[in-house]
Amino acid sequence: MSHAFQITQLVKKYPEFMLGPLDLTLEPGMVLGYIGPNGSGKTTTMHCLTGLVKADKGSMHIFGRENHPNKPAWKLDIGYVGDVHVFYERWTGEKNLKFLSQFYPDWSDTLAKELADRFRCPLHKKAKELSTGNRVKLSLIAALAHSPRLLLLDEPTAGLDPVVRTEVLDTLFEILEDGQRAIFYSTHILSDISRLADELAFLSNGQLVQRTAKDDLTDSWRRISFRLKDKVTINKVVEHKTEGQDHQVVSSDVVETLSHLKALNAGNIQESRMTIDDIAVHILKGVQ
């Protein structure tokens, strides 16, 4: 069976930034969180994948079809919400959706209406009169109403205040929790996606740093404190703070670190779980 998408050796160069070479795949029905700081290349990856920007090297396939600009059938399989929400500004939301519906054979007006009700999006208003939150909602409705098999979400909640962001995400996740679609969700706010993601891919300076199952990450990372006379290098530790004989470390592999500490006869060992945001910060800090 084809991958939802397959990115092979993607390279995109700008005067002061280079993305890749990047290899990344996503399986149908899986949710991949694409995590990285601002300027790490998340949006460039999305733009290359959607054809908004042409890659310098490499290939991209959506459900087995190359994202060729003159063979656009692959676009039927994707729903895309970018960080900028562009419409025919003087048209109502409803008219914008009507325009889009002409291009998608699987477009459902019923679904669009249902989504608008769930998002509480005022489709009768002109796009230029919509608040930022409602523009995001309209983009999401447009991306979902043709039931795409792959949803590409590029920081869709950027610029929203926390209340509207939570409202949009709660509704979105309710809709997406059925697991029918593959989702590629890029963000620098991990809590936005941690609820839904099966896997997380970390990007820094245009390079993929790590890709791992979300549960593996939370199972293996720990904050550990212990007492030890000497300051030594401990296996799998990414951060080490000391105050006299008291040590506090962050471990990326709790089993290996604990076994090493035991071998060193460390005393008063205590471990605590880390939040996924905290883990992400350490992963990305580690490569900078």
């Binding site: 054809g51 908004l52 003159n70 656009p72 039927l76 900028v84 562009v86 500004e89």
Partner: peptide, 16 residues
């Protein structure tokens, strides 16, 4: 100015 080029670019139509 209204960035409609970007809007229609993601539609399933050819570049041509």
């Amino acid at each position: 100015l209204e960035k409609r080029t970007r809007y229609i670019q993601t539609l399933p139509v050819t570049q041509r």
